[in-house]
Amino acid sequence: MKVELKDVHKEFKKGDGQKLHVLDDINFNIEEGEFVSLLGPSGCGKSTILKLIAGLDKATSGDVRVNGEQVTKPGTDRIVVFQEGGLFPWMTVKQNVTYGLNLKKMSKAEVEEKAVEGLQMVHLGNFADAYPHELSGGMKQRVAIARALVMDPEVLLMDEPFAALDEQTRLVLHKELQNIWRKTGNTILFITHNIREALTLSDRVLLMSTRPGKIKESFTVRAARPRDPADSVIVDLEKRVMTELEIEMEKVLKEEFGDDYSLKTDHLRSGDHRDMGSNI
């Protein structure tokens, strides 16, 4: 097992001294080379889970292990691709990509070779000397992915990496990410709130419920690769996941708008009940 979470709890202290229970009893494993998505409504704690695995945050109780070793601090075996990319604006694309490599004990030639290889993998070989602000949102995310890949991480952690992109760019990057994953065989944990994205990319989708965050259900996606979003397996799963997710969303909305709120009340069926019984 690559990644192992056991009875993980997380509480945050709020300003008024109250405790906010964010994660409750999280248990799951990720196998070597598996692509797993964490899916859930915003605020369910999915990013917190990723931070725990990355070592950027500590669990209140429970066990987080990667390769059998307990996670205590950030390490280069677990690289994160952040939603906003997190590229350093004062460095060129190449400097960004080699940032982590230069910290490893590697020869200059090796670093150079790796950087070129990484940038070619995301089709940005010609942009090595550009600055991040000269790139589009999609290109920035590709650089962020290249920066992560060149480190050869044991686990690649992706925190809603495509959430800020437009639909077309996202579809292209989905394809590219699948290709890269097929080539490198990385273990990937992918965080998203987009059902289709989760289903198209992953072997397994973990659906989270909210407040406190829990793993509600696990769906294995048994569709052929490369994935086609119109695949009947995916379409069918999408419906099932949607139903589950709606229950969660309603829970959140009820908390925000009061108990009488219902997600579905605004629906009027346009079929046989249309005449409201005037034909009697």
């Binding site: 990355a54 070592g55 950027l56 950030p74 390490g75 280069t76 677990r78 690289i79 994160v80 952040f82 906003e84 997190g86 590229l87 350093f88 940032y99 982590g100 910290l103 490893k104 920066r147 480190m151």
Partner: peptide, 21 residues
């Protein structure tokens, strides 16, 4: 904190983190 977190996961810390980020 995004930059700090990114640098930390890439293996930077201490004086190197101060100098480069």
């Amino acid at each position: 904190s995004l930059y700090l977190n990114a640098a930390k996961t890439l293996g930077s810390s201490g004086a190197h983190l101060v100098r480069t980020v």
